[in-house]
Amino acid sequence: MKTLLASFFLPFLPFLSLAQPGNPPLAVTRLTTDGAFKSHLQWSADGKKLLFTRIHQGRMELSAMEALPGAKAIPLIVPSPNTPHFDGHWSPDSALVVYVHDTLQGTDGKLQINTVQADGVGVKTLVPHKAFDESPRFSPDGKSIAWVSTRDGNQEIYSLEMASGKINRLTQNPAFDNNCSWKGDGKKIAFASSRSGNFEICSMNQNGDQVLRLTNHPALDCWPVFSPDGKSIAFTSNRTGNYDIFLMQENGENPRNLTSHPGQDNFASFSPDGKRLAFISNRDGGFDIYTLRLQE
């Protein structure tokens, strides 16, 4: 009976202890204190490191650090003022990072998708510059990436089969589709879309079929990310008047505010065991990395 009850309640565990009126706030731990602007946060597969974009000394760069309070952020690639790189994502084995490489030209830039080894060497071009290309994300099996491109005129989501080099267009809509994120089983992709008039969280099958609208709110909803078990999705929303991290079930039900803070909370990333959520917030002034504990 206990086992039966546990299996019934297990999918809802993430929603039982969330910050909401009457509930105690979730325990938050601050990891960095440098305050530099950070974005695009991702936990490594072993849960020991965090990868993120940082504007450091006027340069936008990829940095990595141990997922511990006070750990030092180290640039992944030697930064150059004319080639910002950002929006990185670790491969499932954390051996590679796929990221956006920008070559500044006057007041314009040329974006392309590159990969680099986790130690910062071996830079390779994965998707040569053709248009605005951003947000590359490895599929859970590491065999393909999804990313955002304007190669057909406006922001759409595409996938690239790494072995064959075949590119598949996954979305086709005159609105903006971006901020893609794979589900752990590789069968679905969550993304943000403005097709309903403002940015909402949607999901689709990995081939682009069956687009479902998961949120329905006049505020901005963006940067969705699946929990490791695929049963919930964290995302950013300004429905409280400022950016907070929300968590909802995979089907969009039961959205709950995890952060409930007047600061700007953004760029959620689950730890591999699903027990913690890392995010970036300016709640203490600068933009720093924090974690909150979802469950014991």
Binding site: F37, N82, G109, L111, F199, N266
Partner: peptide, 21 residues
Amino acid sequence: EEDAGDGGWDHHYRNFQIMAD
């Protein structure tokens, strides 16, 4: 993307992401 400050408003590309973030 190239500034000692907060980065300018000349968003020929990535306008909406920069604006939102």
